[in-house]
């Protein structure tokens, strides 16, 4: 892959980032979950995590960024892929030399950018509402490796999942398992409140470990098991990176004008 191609892809991502950040309906979409979250934090601002001095608000604010990252990058990637197949963006990329590589780099930049933006919308006002967050060198260092590793675990996986959905509506169904996993990943409440086997299930998914990593970065008295977070997230990243190129290539190979036209017919039939 040449430097020129990477530059084209990155500039593509930045152009689309600017477009989405100046589209009011998109902005509302990105801000919806974080604003809801901050409202929730306001309601529980005085409560404590059971058995500790930690404010439940601080705990939830930090952990729920793991949820926002999963929604933003895994679901975001899957939905973009479904959407781009439906409207022909992917086929357009296929018609251009090296267009698929440029397209994917662009999508990675865009999805990473919007995910981080969503987290910032929650974190910045949230930090004024809750007590006990720390911002020091350790926070910065942890975020510097955790955020890229998390995105690397989530985006390829999202791309693989997105390849299996023929329409944006079908891809939106991914929200249901995501919310179920949120329930067993210790996002709004410590996982220790759950039965042991359910804790085990929750700990197989990236969301739990992202939450744990984020808590160790922002909350001083959260016991860290950071090496386990690194291990699990790396495994997911490797699995995604091994699977994604083959699955994406297979999906791209099957794209053709008549397929896009057929999907368009279906999409139009739904709206009538």
């Amino acid at each position: 892959m040449s430097g020129r191609l990477i530059r084209i892809g990155v500039s593509r991502g930045l152009i689309e980032m600017r477009q989405t950040m100046t589209t009011p309906s998109d902005l509302i979409g990105y801000a919806f979950s974080p604003v809801l979250l901050v409202a929730l934090l306001f309601l529980i601002r005085d409560e404590k995590v059971p058995g500790s001095d930690l404010s439940l608000g601080a705990y939830s604010l930090v952990s729920s960024m793991a949820m926002l990252l999963v929604i933003g990058s895994l679901l975001g990637m899957a939905q973009y892929l479904a959407m781009d197949r439906e409207d022909g963006t992917l086929l357009r990329a296929k018609a251009v030399p090296n267009g698929m590589v440029g397209y994917l780099i662009g999508r990675i930049v865009l999805v990473a950018g919007t995910s981080v933006f969503t987290c910032a919308v929650a974190l910045i006002p949230g930090a004024f509402l809750v007590d006990g967050l720390r911002f020091d060198v350790f926070t910065a260092v942890t975020l510097l490796w955790l955020a890229p590793l998390g995105l690397l675990a989530l985006m390829p996986l999202g791309a693989v999942l997105g390849s299996f959905f023929e329409s944006v509506r079908a891809a939106a169904l991914l929200m249901m398992p995501t919310l179920t996993i949120t329930g067993i990943s210790g996002i709004f409440y410590p996982i220790s409140a759950l039965p042991g086997w359910l804790q085990g299930v929750g700990q197989t998914f990236p969301m739990y470990w992202l939450g744990l990593g984020l808590r160790s970065a922002f909350l001083s008295d959260e016991p860290g098991q950071l090496w386990r977070a690194v291990l699990v997230l790396s495994l997911w990243a490797v699995a995604g990176l091994v699977l994604a190129p083959g699955v994406l290539r297979r999906m791209a190979r099957r794209e053709s004008g008549s397929l896009v036209a057929a999907r368009r017919e279906r999409a139009l039939a739904r709206t009538i």
Binding site: D84, T89, L91, R92, A95, N98, G102
Partner: peptide, 23 residues
């Protein structure tokens, strides 16, 4: 191709410049 609906948010000149950069 027969029907495109892609790149709806892009501006005309912007998209031509971008896609041209692959060549």
């Amino acid at each position: 191709l027969q029907s495109w609906r892609d790149h709806g948010k892009w501006r005309v000149g912007e998209l031509l410049r971008h896609l041209g950069s692959y060549y």
